[in-house]
């Protein structure tokens, strides 16, 4: 169950992470955002953002067509 899907397909780094940072407040604490991103840097940068901003990287989500997705749980 995710609270919000962010479709960042076609966006190059650092745009998916910027999008995620802008929208994390739109889900409640404990809620999950699913970021869909086909930029290869997102696979490293989304978990790194979670670590730096003290949120939880909850692993890969369901792919959207050919694009991978990443689950982020809001912690604070």
């Amino acid at each position: 169950m995710t609270d919000l899907d962010l479709d960042c397909r076609g966006k190059r780094c650092p745009l998916p992470v910027i999008e995620l940072a802008k929208r994390i407040g739109d889900v409640p604490v404990g809620g999950i955002i699913r970021v869909i991103a086909d930029d290869p840097a997102a696979a490293t940068d989304i978990p790194a953002w979670c670590r730096m901003r003290e949120h939880e990287y909850a692993g890969p989500g369901e792919p959207e067509a050919t694009a991978p997705s990443y689950l982020v749980r809001r912690i604070r």
Binding site: C13, P40, A41, A43, T44
Partner: peptide
């Protein structure tokens, strides 16, 4: 290329900026 540095990827640290 689209891929960031393989070193930063392997370390799992932020690759942008």
């Amino acid at each position: 290329t689209l891929r960031p540095s393989h070193v930063l990827e392997a370390m799992g640290v932020l690759t942008h900026g």
